[in-house]
Design a protein around this nucleic acid. Structure first.
Lengths: 226, 226
DNA sequence: CCTCAATGTGTCACCCACTGACAGATGACC
DNA sequence: GGTCATCTGTCAGTGGGTGACACATTGAGG
């Protein structure tokens, strides 16, 4: 499916993000071009791969100028990774909502479950969207440049988690090692779960994997393996 | 200190890497240009920062062509991160040498100590070299692009460790979660230790930090924090 | 309906990292 | 000293990304 452009009648464009405020014409137009760019980009990445697709090719497909592309996305990477950043933000937001009574591990686990729950409604709408996400995971892991950027996002998330956890527990992250440990290890396990997951089986499968990895952590370090 | 170039008499160039095979003139010349590029680059990075220094400026300082730069380094990042890749390789090598009788955690810990030991002789020679390393850590952590590349190296190391550990323990890394867990968590803790370390106090300080983080892992997850 | 200000878009000129191809210089070895 | 391999510079080009300016479109108010 090749979404064409802007000033074309309409309809051609994929359903945009679930919650569509859609006020003025201006806003709608912007969302349309943005969606068209994303859609065209994915079509091209699918065919030629990320690195061998130029921004020019993407903008040609949508009939906008290259300059416009960089007004919507900070970089070529950003087009692919923006949803990931959003997911990361959603997670930290959920973590902040966890009651202070929970132990850090449990707060993290529960925030993960909550954030995953929020993503569900988006999935139910379009089967396609889900498949897209699957492809995104594969594309990122098979493209060093994207993987690298992805890891940076994860690192920033870790830094963020350190602060939140330290605040929750009223400890100083500079002197107390535990916030750093728990944030870094949690993110590392999430990353591993994400790799093993590969996008199959929906968000629940990812969360289930994350739980399993978390549960196996202590035995792996504390016990003999045989 | 600005190292000039190639065909200049000699002497001006910093002591190159500790072990200098120094056979033919050709090899020596190559090593000299390489060292001069690294040296000039660091001077410039120190003054203007990584991103605002162009490859052109580096090559101008050494009086070689830009093209030559890219024959010595795969990229601008590579100039900064090559030592890190080398350290990573040294570590995996040491891990392979650990006796099969050791538990995975202990093998990793011991390999770390062994690899750190190998780095020491290099340090003793030049105080400068040590300071350089300190600056490298700071530069990497303050430059997103370098941090990103650094994380990719760490990720590749993790992947490597998974394989080695799985082989040591005769388990299948596809079905057994433990190799992935231990590799990912170990690398994550190393990264944290590296950040906290910041280059102060030599390699021993880094190893000591890593040990402390490792020791605190289980209490952090298993026990209540208060 | 018309006007004005805000905002979005295209064009152009430019910077920088990086690469392939070719030609000339320079060590290595007999 | 001549031959061969290897290194180096030059050149032309690709691709990502940015600032500046001009034009066009939209939204709001009279």
């Amino acid at each position: 499916m090749t979404c064409t452009l802007n000033h074309v009648s309409s309809a051609v464009v994929k359903r945009s993000t679930p919650a569509t405020p859609a006020c003025g014409l201006r806003e709608r137009k912007k969302r349309r071009t943005r969606d068209a760019l994303v859609s065209a980009a994915w079509d091209l990445f699918h065919g030629r791969g990320y690195e061998r697709t130029t921004v020019r090719e993407i903008t040609d497909a949508v009939e906008v100028s290259e300059r416009t592309f960089f007004r919507y996305f900070a970089s070529k990477e950003d087009l692919v990774l923006a949803p990931l950043t959003a997911a990361s933000d959603a997670f930290t937001e959920q973590l902040r909502l966890r009651p202070a009574s929970e132990r850090p591990v449990d707060a993290l686990r529960n925030a993960l479950h909550a954030a995953a729950g929020l993503l569900e409604p988006g999935l139910l709408e379009t089967q396609t969207d889900w498949e897209t996400h699957r492809q995104a995971v594969k594309l990122i892991e098979s493209t060093p440049q994207l993987m690298s950027a992805h890891l940076l996002i994860a690192q920033r998330l870790t830094d963020h988690l350190v602060e939140i956890v330290a605040e929750r527990e009223h400890v100083d992250p500079l002197t107390d090692r535990r916030p750093r440990i728990i944030a870094a290890v949690f993110c590392a396990l999430m990353t591993v779960a994400g790799q093993v997951w590969g996008g199959d089986g929906g968000i629940e499968a990812l969360v289930k994997l994350a739980d399993e990895y978390l549960a196996d952590l202590i035995p792996t370090f504390a016990q003999s393996w045989h």
